[in-house]
Design a protein around this nucleic acid. Structure first.
Length: 208
DNA sequence: GACCCGATTTCCT
DNA sequence: GGAAATCGGGTCA
């Protein structure tokens, strides 16, 4: 297989149109697999293909929007396609995409990326070289793309500091499993991942 | 205003 | 494989 540090020749960074995003959280989590997260930094563009997501749905006790809107989670209640960024464990920043319609506190957690462009930038941000570890895991992903709370609430369907794009690349076979690291509503199969991808965090064959 | 705990990562045994 | 690190938001007094 080819080295993954080859330059991505596609330069189409057109944002996904909001109208093409499924208006349903689980469908959106599935839909985002294979799409591209694009980050614009002073040093240039850094991007990666989404290989793992988790859905946090309506009535989901594990979801941050479960108990209603608060100052922290208000972005989850935006119309689908907006960023919800928060800090977990005081250490790890998480990137989510709001789903459903305005007023519904649901979203999709982006858990892992396959690095595409700006790999040297990501290596510097992470302080490591190894490609596979650059964005394997939600906290690592955010660190690699230098995502912080200042991006909370951003419209990801518009070009800016951070947005979602598609390059027409087909995602590989998609697996489904329970979500990682949660205790409430833990039995639901709301995690999606590319089966053969080495860039997926956690068990890549944890299906049911 | 104190206390609890989490959608994780990293290092140590 | 296991536990510590770390901090802001939510809950309750």
């Amino acid at each position: 297989m080819g080295r993954a540090d080859t330059v991505n020749r596609r330069d189409d960074h057109s944002p996904l149109a909001r109208a093409e995003l499924p208006a349903n959280t689980v469908s959106l989590a599935r839909y985002l697999i294979g799409k591209v997260v694009v980050r614009e930094l002073p040093e240039g563009i850094a991007s990666g293909r989404i290989v793992e997501t988790e859905a946090y749905v309506v009535g989901d006790a594990a979801g941050h929007g479960y108990r209603g809107m608060t100052p922290r989670n208000r972005s989850l209640f935006l119309e689908r396609g907006h960023a919800y960024v928060y800090l977990a464990y005081g250490i790890s920043t998480m990137l989510n995409v709001s789903s459903e319609m305005q007023g519904i506190g649901t979203g999709v957690l982006i858990r892992a990326l396959e690095p595409l462009e700006g790999i040297p930038i990501m290596q510097l941000n992470r302080g490591i070289e190894r490609l596979r570890d650059l964005a394997r895991g939600p906290g690592r992903l955010a660190q690699a793309l230098r995502i912080d709370r200042s991006l909370d609430g951003l419209d990801l369907c518009r070009q800016g500091p951070l947005w979602l794009a598609g390059d027409g690349h087909e995602a590989g076979e998609i697996g489904q499993s329970i979500r990682i690291g949660i205790s409430k509503d833990a039995d639901r199969l709301l995690r999606f991942y590319v089966r053969k991808s080495p860039f997926v965090s956690g068990p890549g064959s944890l299906n049911a």
